[in-house]
Amino acid sequence: MTISIAAVGDLVLDEPDPAFFLAPSAAVITKADIAIGHIEVPHSHTTVQASTDVPAPAADPAALKDVAAAGFDVVTLAGNHIYDAGPEGLLDTIAFSRDAGLLTAGAGANLADARKPAVITKDGTTVGILSFNCVGPRDSWAASQKAGAAYVKVLTHYELDSATPGGPPTIYTFTAPDSLRSMQDDIRKLKAEVDLVVVALHKGIGHTPAVLADYEIPLSHAAVDAGADVVIGHHAHIMRGIEMYRGVPIFHGLGNFVTVTQALNADGESAERAEWAARRVKMFGFAPDPGMPTYPFHPESRNTAIAVCTFDGRRLVSAGFVPCWIDDDARPVPHGPTETGERVLAYITDISRSAGFSTTFTWDGEHVLVQAHPDQENHHV
């Protein structure tokens, strides 16, 4: 019997009435046998801020019930903001998620807990989900006696290519070998216990169209080599390309889904968030649309998708996605082969080509099928 697994990118539910923002996509999400989303910020009543980066305020725990009501079964938590409200905020997020009927992966009271998968069985097929944060900050990482997120350590090297001190460098990124092996060990162990493994990676360069950092493709391939059946990326708040590697779909970044907040506005209470808002244009080359005060993100990030993969036992039957456009109310709205759907598909095709992927995309009803190029399953230049 076949089962379908759906996945979306970041969920930031920091505005009243989350159900309103989730409503247009709920029919697609609930249709899937298993649906996975990424909770980006803590959900807690605490007012503590524990991050020295750009801290996200804790969102209303009641929003997690709306996530479950919209059809989600599993939420991944390994991300750069999950520890922003300290251990209390993190543990509250886990507790409130589970109270809402959601399984969690990627965060815990210690590293062992954070590395535990979410495991769910539907129609005789058991699926395990692992979640890893690849972007820091380091104080968000779990340790043997510290709450936090499961993680893969990524190193950055700056190479000065000219004789000008302070000149622009070439930036190289790569995973720390022991950390990569640890991730692969978790995947192999889980693969021996379940039929299918989904690996969620919080990775990439934020708010920057199309670009993949050096480490992202080798890291994703390493997950597949260890046994992952689907790899899902998020964090950049803008979509990334899609590839097929060894017959496994890799969604390098599903971008934003419902991400509604006013915390990143320049007039917020946090000095760090206000400073970030002031630097945003220089850093990323965009200013949020003033007509969408609850959506402080890159205009191209309104292109998004719901990944949908179908399996028969351990065999992939189809991989694909439903194109979505984030409307003027900041709600992701699914689109079939309409003018809007075609525009989103063209965007995803373009960023996939920019990444060097030869993946083909074909409409199949309301979905787009993702397939390897017929001449070469994995082509990357």
Rank of each mutant, 00 (worst) to 15 (best):
V224F: 00
E15M: 14
D178V: 12
Y172M: 12
D92F: 02
A223V: 14
R188I: 08
V199H: 02
Y172D: 12
A223W: 07
N133R: 03
D73L: 04
D327G: 05
Q376K: 13
A274H: 00
A114G: 09
A112L: 08
C309M: 13
D289H: 05
A69R: 13
A112H: 06
T126H: 00
T52H: 03
H202R: 07
H157W: 08
E272C: 03
A68P: 05
A69E: 12
D195N: 15
H252Y: 11
A228M: 03
G320M: 07
V248G: 06
M292V: 10
A59P: 08
P290N: 01
D225H: 08
M244H: 09
D214N: 15
I351A: 02
S354A: 15
Q184D: 06
D161W: 00
A59R: 06
F257G: 10
N133T: 12
I242C: 04
G124P: 11
T294I: 15
Y151F: 15
I238S: 07
A147P: 10
I129R: 00
I94E: 01
A56E: 02
V368Q: 08
F72S: 11
P55H: 04
D229L: 10
H380M: 08
A62Y: 07
S182C: 11
S25F: 01
A200C: 15
A277C: 03
P55M: 05
H380K: 06
S97K: 08
A85G: 12
V135W: 00
H335S: 09
T121P: 06
I242D: 01
E15G: 03
A266V: 14
V333I: 05
L22I: 09
I129L: 08
R138L: 12
E272S: 14
P87K: 06
I217F: 00
S358V: 08
H207W: 11
